[in-house]
């Protein structure tokens, strides 16, 4: 249902029909030539805008690949890259590019963030879509969108100045910049996406489902639990995956809040360093074309692959729901 709005671009219908109809009519064109030319030009501009997104994506992909691929297949020890925790790109005596701790950092922070965000995000989506009245819904949606609009550097700042001492006090741990700190921030950042897309998915379930369920005597909770959630399953999964994509790619907040320590975390209270934060912290000073510079681009390729896979899966799932 929610998708219908997207499949119906009204401007196009209104814009093209009169032109084509009038061209063959004996009374001649109702519009001036200039108007028609402008119309065509505008259409081309818009088409170009659409294509430019594809050009940009491929441009970025090409650029990242070009900088990293030479080192990826010549010089980089892939076994060390994936299985060693020793990250010493600027060592004088023994340069080592082991990214395992960084990969573990990214996945631990993202994983914990999702543990926190999925119940909250999907719960909020269910509440917004099924349980609250119009006014509450409007307010909630505005507030949630506001949450999405907070810049990540502000989140990072909150992590350093608010969560850092709070986590030290509450959990009696020596360092407040750790997995938990980063995960809390990432959870807050990915919840808005989950709510928006999750609500979209729930709204797409036809009302007849709800009516039938209620008619059979089910309570509202039973309706949600037994009817709506299974029916909107794919859309909700896509919502979660898009949240994951957001969390994996986030840089500034995790750079500031996770402590930035090359370390395989043994508990949520250990500081870690993520792939994104490593690129952000080190690329500025790595001299262009050096192995260190190239290995950072290899990390970029790895990140690109992860987020691409996550987004692709999410997209395929969404497409799957649309066909049915």
């Amino acid at each position: 249902m929610g998708e219908q709005a997207m499949n119906l671009p009204p401007a196009r219908v209104v814009g093209t029909r009169p032109v084509s109809a009038s061209a063959g009519s004996p009374r001649g064109p109702r519009r001036g030539r200039f108007a028609i030319a402008a119309e065509t030009a505008l259409e081309w501009v818009i088409r170009l805008c659409g294509i430019s997104a594809i050009v940009f994506v491929f441009g970025i992909f090409f650029f990242v690949l070009r900088e990293g691929v030479g080192f990826l297949f010549g010089g980089l020890n892939l076994v060390q890259f994936f299985f060693s925790t020793e990250w010493y790109p600027t060592s004088v005596s023994n340069v080592r590019y082991g990214a395992l701790a960084l990969i573990a950092g990214t996945f631990s922070v993202t994983g914990l963030a999702m543990l926190i965000a999925v119940p909250f995000g999907l719960g909020a989506a269910v509440f917004v879509s099924e349980f609250c009245n119009q006014r509450v819904r409007e307010t909630l949606k505005v507030v949630i969108e506001l949450l999405a609009a907070i810049p990540s550097v502000v989140w990072g700042f909150i992590g350093i100045s608010v969560l850092n001492p709070l986590i030290q006090e509450v959990f009696h741990v020596p360092v407040g910049l750790n997995v938990l700190n980063g995960a809390l921030l990432l959870a807050l950042m990915s919840v808005p996406i989950m709510v928006s897309i999750g609500e979209d998915a729930l709204k797409a379930v036809p009302d007849s489902f709800r009516e039938a369920s209620l008619a059979m005597g089910a309570t509202r909770w039973q309706t949600v639990h037994r009817v709506l959630l299974p029916a909107a399953k794919n859309g909700l999964l896509a919502a979660v995956l898009l949240g994951v994509g957001r969390a994996v790619g986030e840089t500034m907040a995790v750079l500031m809040a996770t402590g930035h320590a090359v370390n395989i975390p043994k508990s949520p209270f250990d500081p870690v360093r993520t792939l994104t934060a490593t690129i952000a912290a080190e690329l500025g000073e790595a001299s262009v074309g050096s192995p260190h510079y190239q290995v950072l681009f290899v990390i970029g390729i790895l990140l690109f692959t992860i987020t691409f896979a996550v987004n692709l899966i999410a997209d395929m799932i969404v497409k799957g729901t649309r066909k049915r």
Partner: peptide
């Protein structure tokens, strides 16, 4: 010829180091 022990909190600026020490 040596390297740092890994697992240290690697801050991004001189000021951040002092701030982090002050909080920990």
């Amino acid at each position: 010829k040596n390297d740092f022990k890994s697992g240290s909190l690697d801050m991004n600026g001189s000021k951040d180091v002092v701030e982090q020490v002050a909080k920990t």
